[in-house]
């Protein structure tokens, strides 16, 4: 079976709607098919990756720690759009530090988050076989 390039596009904030959680679950389930998976975060989707989320008082599960498990599922390319961060007053430092262990490099920890500009994000999107939007 030939490997296809899959991109999951996240454009929604984490808790106001169910899209973000649904996307994450589909990414985890889809990882079993061993395809070339990337995940994109743009527009309000960048809010999903912020650190320090604490949902204790709103009665829903805080799923932000799960992004740090994606590396175990061989999902190691998380593209984040720089313009979307800037419009929301965010910088890379406001995001969780998400890493994966490179098995082919003695389990060296490498960053999963790749900050790209809008034009580069368009290139990432144009380079895919399948694009799934949330």
């Amino acid at each position: 079976m030939t490997t296809k390039k899959f991109l999951y596009v996240n454009r929604k904030a984490p808790y106001g709607t169910i899209y973000a959680l649904e996307s994450l679950e589909v990414v985890l389930i889809g990882a079993a098919f061993e395809q070339d998976v990337s995940v994109a975060f743009l527009d309000d989707g960048v809010f999903q990756l912020t650190k320090g989320q604490d949902t204790g008082e709103i009665g829903v599960k805080n799923f932000s720690p799960t992004f740090r498990a994606l590396g175990d599922y061989d999902v190691t390319k998380l593209y984040v759009e720089a313009e979307s961060l800037a419009e929301r007053g965010l910088t890379k430092d406001d995001l969780q530090d998400i890493q994966y262990e490179d098995e082919d490099d003695d389990y060296a920890e490498k960053p999963s988050i790749i900050i790209v500009n809008r034009a580069e994000m368009a290139d990432v999107m144009a380079d895919q076989d399948v694009v799934l939007s949330f």
Partner: peptide, 28 residues
């Protein structure tokens, strides 16, 4: 943020609140 100046302008005449539990949930 790109929206902040619009909000700041309006604060001269209206009072603004945020629900803190929703703020914490989002890591702000």
């Amino acid at each position: 943020t790109g929206m902040a100046s619009m909000v700041e302008d309006k604060m001269k005449s209206v009072t603004l609140y945020v629900l803190s539990p929703d703020l914490s949930a989002r890591g702000i």
